[in-house]
């Protein structure tokens, strides 16, 4: 029988990196920057966190000596710094130097994955372990820490309370991002920059500054998705290339949610559910069928694209200046 009680928590765990990634990318895209470097940025966020955690764990040695605050904050600070630098680099290339956004983004993804695998590989060598992975069990304990009574609070506790803190952080960030975009003056101005930068410029809005801010903050949020993946979902185990195609799913999710982070909360759950559906459907030994199920999120995204382009509602279209560099004196 289909086991919802075990299915939903697993779907949530899958959904969280996607939600963080798509919230970050939505903010970025609202400024008119189509950052296809998100998969690389999430990857860099993850490995930066791993590096921080690795050295902290080396220093303290065991759980008893570890300070909860430091064990959480050091990896997180490293993760935010790493993903910020990636976002900043992307902005420098596309906003200041006006390089092509797609090419830059794809290059950032390739670079980010290579960067992650290089340092991941180096750390594995440092530990001298036999398996090609690093286990950060101390950090994992803090990241996956749950409310003590959550497990005993029945079905509600199982489904709603029984997660590491980053899950709730992701939801709060998505709600805040929604509020920011729709209910604040800066949000309005950010949207104006993404829709029509020359109009925003004429209205006295600093277009470049908004693009930098939105992209860097967006990258940092996306980076947290990578961090959550390693520290909580993967039980603190880093192995090269394990992150998979989650970064691309996050970008697909942005389209799926028609650029609305609050919609992303439920949509990411749907994506997460579709992503692991194959584990819950009896497929026997036929691996090919599993692969078909894994396609589901992408198929759904394509369907959404078809539906929104049929409906032709202007609010559901991507920001009008998405992917276009802005130069005041251009014709």
């Amino acid at each position: 029988m289909f086991d919802l009680i075990s299915f939903i928590p697993r779907a949530v765990a899958q959904a969280t990196p996607l939600l963080l990634g798509s919230t970050g990318e939505t903010l970025t895209e609202k400024s008119g920057n189509l950052n296809l470097g998100i998969p690389g940025i999430m990857y860099v966020g993850a490995i930066s966190g791993v590096i921080g955690a690795f050295f902290y764990e080396q220093k303290v040695g065991s759980v008893e000596n570890a300070n909860a605050f430091l064990a959480i904050m050091i990896p997180m600070a490293c993760c935010l710094l790493g993903s910020f630098l990636m976002g900043f680099l992307y902005c420098f290339l596309t906003v200041t130097l006006r390089a092509n956004q797609n090419v830059t983004g794809l290059a950032m993804t390739t670079f980010g994955v290579g960067f992650g695998n290089f340092f991941g590989g180096s750390l594995i060598k440092l530990t001298g372990s036999d398996v090609p992975s690093i286990a950060l069990s101390i950090t994992h304990q803090f990241y996956a820490a749950k409310l003590p009574f959550a497990g005993k609070a029945g079905v509600f506790g199982e489904l709603v309370l029984n997660y590491g803190f980053l899950v709730y952080v992701a939801i709060v960030i998505a709600l805040l991002a929604s509020f920011f975009l729709n209910r604040t003056r800066r949000g309005l101005q950010l949207r104006a920059v993404g829709e029509n930068p020359s109009t925003a410029d004429a209205a006295g809005i600093n277009v470049a500054a908004y693009k930098y801010w939105a992209t860097c903050v967006g990258s940092m949020i996306a980076g947290l998705g990578g961090l959550y993946y390693v520290m909580d979902y993967a039980s603190g185990v880093w192995s090269n290339d394990a992150f998979g195609d989650r970064g691309w799913l996050a970008i697909a999710l942005v389209i799926f949610t028609i650029w609305r982070p609050n919609v992303g909360i439920l949509a990411s759950l749907l994506f997460g559910a579709l992503y692991i559906l194959y584990l819950y459907i009896p497929t026997g030994t036929n691996m090919a069928i599993k692969e078909i199920y894994k396609m589901a999120p992408f198929v759904v995204t394509i369907l959404v694209l078809i539906v929104i382009s049929l409906r032709k509602k202007r609010e559901n279209q991507p920001p009008a200046a998405l992917g276009l560099p802005y130069f005041r004196e251009d014709r």
């Binding site: 003056r185 309005l188 949207r191 104006a192 029509n196 109009t199 925003a200 209205a203 809005i205 009008a320």
Partner: peptide, 18 residues
């Protein structure tokens, strides 16, 4: 005209005011 199409008249009018 310098207007953002997907926004309302009011949103366009207050754009850039601080």
């Amino acid at each position: 005209y310098k207007l953002v199409d997907v926004m309302t008249a009011t949103q366009n009018i207050i754009l850039g005011l601080k």
